[in-house]
Write a protein that binds this DNA or RNA. Structure first.
Length: 246
DNA sequence: AATTCCCGCAACCGCATGACG
DNA sequence: TCGTCATGCGGTTGCGGGAAT
């Protein structure tokens, strides 16, 4: 159901991701975070562009990503938010924990659109909502920076990002299974195997992540990873309250 | 049983925006 | 202030499974 793998003129791999690539990307981000998507593929030993890695992580590998059918409640919320804000898929996704913008967009085009008679609100509503989103995003970025600095100072992030079954497996446990929804990998087993490899093979973490120069830039030594699911619902409520009552 | 057609969804592409020097 | 680069977002593509014929 996906495009077959191929290589472009720059030698970058395109098309469907393999379970091995998923594994490399997941392990690398768990350990080093993803502060620089451009450098990440090379350091992780992947022949992919940064954008491709980011998309794969955000839409598929990221912890908490919910797969499967949309509930009636979720569909209702999508319809409502789409009526208010239009094709702001990322905003809509923030109001549906575990759903990605891509998945919502696909679901809209394949299921919901055909059943919905468009009822666009005024441009005033859209502009106000868009402006509020930007303000909120700026505030969030600033607070994230403070948070990362505070955590880095106590080494908590580095500790939590080290790969162990207790830490890494919950990334997929929210799916109700220890298996990746796509790769079929049993991540608990994989983590055990990985931990074993780490104990018996001292250079595991230098391959394939750092194949060439054995150097991890500073930005990868402190994970900037923060909760993906923020307070979008609060924002939506706030904006709706600001709108003039007709 | 074989073929065609349609649909779902993962992934790609181009553009807009923001950060940084 | 301007130019460059990285990132994020939304639109689109195209493969493959399943339904229809």
């Amino acid at each position: 159901m996906v495009r077959g793998p191929f290589y472009d003129k720059n030698g970058l791999k395109k098309g469907a991701w393999t379970s091995e690539e998923d594994y490399k990307l997941t392990c690398f981000i768990q350990r080093y975070g993803h502060s620089n998507w451009c450098k990440l593929p090379r350091l992780a030993g992947l022949s992919r562009c940064g954008k491709s890695c980011r998309l794969r992580w955000v839409n598929y590998l990221q912890p908490g990503v919910k797969r499967g059918n949309f509930t009636k409640e979720e569909e209702g919320l999508i319809i409502k938010l789409h009526e208010e804000a239009g094709n702001k898929w990322s905003m809509i996704a923030k109001n549906l924990p575990g759903r990605t913008d891509n998945e919502i967009k696909n679901h809209w085009h394949t299921h919901l659109k055909k059943h919905i008679k468009q009822n666009p609100k005024t441009s005033e509503v859209k502009e106000k909502f868009s402006g509020a989103l930007k303000r909120k995003a700026k505030q969030k970025r600033e607070s994230e920076i403070e948070s990362v600095h505070a955590s880095a100072s106590s080494h908590q992030i580095l500790e939590s990002s080290s790969l162990s079954p207790e830490v890494s497996s919950p990334k997929f446990s929210s799916l109700g299974s220890d298996h990746s929804p796509v790769t079929g990998i049993n991540w608990i087993e994989e983590d055990r195997r990985l931990a074993s490899s780490f104990e018996t093979c001292g250079d595991f973490w230098s391959e394939p992540f750092v194949a060439d120069d054995m150097y991890i830039p500073y930005e990868f030594t402190i994970s900037p990873y923060v909760s993906y699911y923020d307070d979008g619902i609060d924002l939506f409520d706030q904006v709706m309250q600001e709108l003039p009552k007709n």
